[in-house]
Write a protein that binds this DNA or RNA. Structure first.
Length: 502
RNA sequence: GACUCACUAGCUCAACUGGCAGAGCAACUGACUCUUAAUCAGUAGGUUCGCGGUUCGAUUCCGCGGUGGGUCACCA
């Protein structure tokens, strides 16, 4: 007890009784000459390897010795024999500690272990009378003493705030979380290999820049001390990638983080992962096919099928629809906005259809408002919407037949935008006019309108080949393929407000 | 940013209209050499998110604040 008092003075802050007990055990191990925090351990088998190769490994007396390492997740003591569960990357394995095998001292050491401790074991594989594959421990080492108690073994960690803030505990306690993030990595790998196989060059462009362009969004602002200047975190990779196509890198893509200073909800995190892809001499139709291919391939590689179930809804990526924005709106409202000759006429149609719009909207803006209001959330099955108004597409090339609209598409699944692409605007004169229009909107108070990017105009003046471009929201694709309801469930460390103290 | 719901032991959750704050798991002590949410007996563990207020009395009612979830707004 005197010892306990001493320890309390060393850690006066918030060490509760359970943590104190663990610190005492750590000290007891150290007093016995056992390092509570070990060094390396030669692992020969993961839990899954043992299950996979049980036939070769089995043998209480003469089977080979296997070495495993992992976290102790459960202890079931029976006096002089105990079962425990050891969890490694591949899963859990039952291990058996027996007084007769280990001897008094080591068995006493085992009894001192806590759930959560990381140990290495050496033992032989056998099957219990109940038929469970188990490793009978002949020797073990404490590799890392755990000083904090884990959440409850049966219910796991439920508190969503703690799951996001302390993802490491979530990963320990909830195996499906681990699966989700393994899937995330597989999806990203699948996208890379799909693009690499088609001769796309993966590149990296600056995250910090003096102009945040390529999307309609408010940027984060940071500051460079030595240069004494304001910098923006990128909101898209688009303009730099097109510069590279000007430079002759005909097929490029960048898979990386972009940052947008906007609200947070189940679909939005301030930083998110996008992949943007540019292909010279292609148009938006080629990119629609590429989008379909990427998504289908990722689904097949991760799930083995293009048919997924998302939040209870069956979605088949092999069955994709395509319809123009105007036709989709026409179907939903009976109004042909592109037939409107004047803004007044379009406004009357919108009023009639119960679509709210703003004064700044032209015909195209009103069509888009009608689409967002009446169509977007109904697009549950994979659907490519094409022909977006020029007014809302400052970087897309106009449709040759109808300059009101662009050769653009957006890919919707479950009522959400998953990808966006278009034939790139490569006419520097037109691009400059569009930027000027954006700047006007910006000056009128639209913080999300584009900034003027003179150098980008210059690049276009050197000549951008006809090019198709595409951006995919990687997090959203991962959500769909892992059946995750919130973007936070596919981000290892979603953005959280800083805690007041700590 | 608005609205709304939540916050109780390490974790998962209880506590009727305001009346001594409880359980399971985890922990601790003991029993137990094939259990698997092991079992059995016992013990300990709380600033009920924080600060105010109403009340004889607040986990409960009211106000302000914090954090989180959801919906909306903005957007991908």
């Amino acid at each position: 007890m005197g010892n306990k008092q001493e320890e309390k003075e060393l850690h006066p802050e918030d060490i509760n009784e359970m943590m104190q007990v663990r610190r005492d055990k750590m000290k007891a191990f150290a007093d016995k000459g056992i390092l509570p925090f070990g060094h390396r351990y030669e692992v020969t088998h993961h839990a899954q390897d043992i299950r996979d190769h049980f036939d070769e490994l089995e043998g209480e007396e003469d089977g080979p010795i296997v070495h495993m390492a992992g976290r102790l997740m459960a202890k079931r003591g029976h006096g002089k024999a105990s079962f425990a569960e050891l969890m490694d990357l591949s899963g859990k394995m039952q291990v058996y500690f027996k007084y007769d095998v280990l001897g008094e001292d080591k068995y006493a050491n085992f009894r001192m272990l806590d759930i959560g401790d990381i140990i290495g074991i050496a033992g032989r594989v056998f099957k219990t009378q109940r038929g469970e594959i188990t490793v009978k421990v002949e020797d073990f080492d404490l590799l890392s003493k755990s000083l904090r108690p884990l959440p409850e073994k049966f219910h796991g960690l439920k508190d969503v705030e703690m799951r996001y803030r302390q993802r490491y505990v979530d990963l320990i306690m909830n195996p499906e979380v681990r699966e989700t993030f393994i899937s995330r990595t597989k999806i990203i790998k699948a996208m890379r290999s799909y693009l690499d196989a088609r001769d796309f060059l993966e590149v990296e462009t600056p995250v910090m820049s003096t102009i945040a362009g390529g999307a309609a969004a408010r940027p984060f602002i940071t500051y460079h001390n030595a240069l004494d200047m304001k910098l923006y975190l990128r909101i898209a990779t688009e303009l730099n990638l097109k510069r590279l196509v000007v430079g002759g890198l005909e097929r490029v893509y960048e898979l990386g983080r972009v940052f947008r200073n906007e609200g947070i909800d189940v679909r939005h995190n301030p930083e998110f992962t996008s992949v943007e892809i540019y292909q010279a001499y292609a148009d938006y139709n080629d990119l629609i096919e590429l989008t379909e291919g990427i998504v289908r391939d990722a689904a097949e590689k991760v799930l083995g099928t293009t048919k997924i179930t998302y939040q209870g809804l069956e979605i088949d990526f092999a069955n994709v629809k395509r319809i123009s924005m105007n036709d989709a709106v026409k179907e939903a409202t009976g109004k042909d906005f592109l037939a409107a000759k004047t803004v007044e006429e379009a406004r009357a149609m919108a009023d009639d259809a119960g679509v709210p719009y703003e004064q700044k909207h032209g015909i195209g803006g009103i069509l888009n408002a009608a689409f967002e209001e009446k169509v977007e959330t109904t697009l549950m099955q994979p659907t490519f919407i094409t022909g977006h108004p020029t007014e809302i597409s400052p970087l897309a090339k106009r449709n040759p037949e109808n300059p009101m609209i662009t050769d653009r598409f957006e890919f919707f699944v479950y009522g959400r935008e998953l990808a966006n692409g278009f034939t790139e605007l490569n006419d520097p004169i037109d691009q400059e006019q569009r930027f000027l229009e954006q700047v006007k909107q910006r000056e009128a108070g639209d913080a999300e309108a584009h900034m003027m990017d003179r150098d980008f105009i210059t690049a276009l003046e050197y000549g951008l080949p006809p090019t198709g471009g595409l951006g995919i929201g990687v997090d959203r694709l991962v959500m769909l393929l892992t059946d995750s309801a919130s973007i936070r469930d596919v981000l290892l460390f979603p953005h959280m407000r800083a805690k007041a103290e700590e």
